[in-house]
Computed example of a mutant assay.
Amino acid sequence: MTGDGSQPGLVSPAWATVHTDTGVARALQLMHETPSSSWTLASLARRPGSSRSALSRRFADALGEPPMGYLAFSAAFYRHHGIRPAAHRRAVPAI
């Protein structure tokens, strides 16, 4: 363990650092707060004041997939498991 409490060689998952990009963080927050909304890339980008292409690129860079792919995964995960992915991550202890 290092002086800042981190463990050398361990890399945080991308979603753990998404808060550093406020536009991506806001879009992610909106999707998690109201997953049943009829989100489009345009409506997600409009809220934080971003273009569709910029949000899509930055979201994919931060999370490894574009916003609509993430939203589809989140909806499918909830249908299958009955719990949102973020709630599942909070409930399962980190390894």
Results as ranks from 00 to 15, higher is better:
S36R: 05
A42D: 14
T34H: 13
S56A: 10
V24K: 01
S53T: 11
L28R: 01
A27V: 00
R46H: 14
A94E: 10
R90P: 00
P13Q: 07
A62M: 08
P93E: 06
A62I: 02
S53R: 15
A76D: 10
G23E: 02
A54D: 08
T17P: 04
T17S: 14
S51F: 04
A16P: 04
S74F: 06
H88L: 13
T40R: 11
R84F: 09
G82H: 09
M68C: 08
Y70R: 01
V92A: 00
V24S: 04
H81Y: 10
A62R: 13
T34A: 15
P67L: 12
F77N: 07
V24G: 03
G69M: 11
R79H: 02
L71E: 04
H19C: 14
A86K: 09
E65N: 10
A45S: 14
M68R: 10
H80P: 07
A94F: 11
S6T: 09
A42C: 13
P13I: 03
T2G: 10
W39N: 12
V18L: 03
E65M: 15
A45W: 08
A75Q: 08
S53D: 12
S53P: 06
G3P: 04
A91P: 04
H88Y: 13
I83H: 06
A42M: 15
A27P: 00
S56N: 11
T20E: 14
D21Q: 00
L55V: 00
G9H: 09
A14I: 11
A76Q: 10
L63C: 09
R84E: 11
S37F: 13
V24L: 04
A75N: 07
